[in-house]
Amino acid sequence: MVDEKSVSASEPLDLIRLCLDEQIFVKLRGNREMTGKLHAYDSHCNIVLGDATETIYYLESGSEDVKSRKEKSELVFVRGDSVMSIADASNIGKTNA
């Protein structure tokens, strides 16, 4: 039906390429998540996100509840070593509202 070679035969990093200029959702080490528009990436998963919102989850001492706080950045470079996963934000339904 569809010539989908470009999608299915690609390497993992090519899937990130599809998200260029799109909202993505990034899971990061240290209980962090970030959404933003992907402007650049490389083979180390270094990325640059525009209008990014970072969510940091943490436990306050003596409490069981996971709390979170958000931090915004107009443009941020995220070093690849802290990136755990990258997803198209529209697929997750967690857009940068």
Partner: peptide, 28 residues
Amino acid sequence: KENDENDLLPKEYKMYRSSRSVQLSSIE
């Protein structure tokens, strides 16, 4: 990858041209 592999996939995994990832890939 065999051409008919697509037919073996469950329906929800089939790639339609209108699916977002196929469109994104076309744009790329």
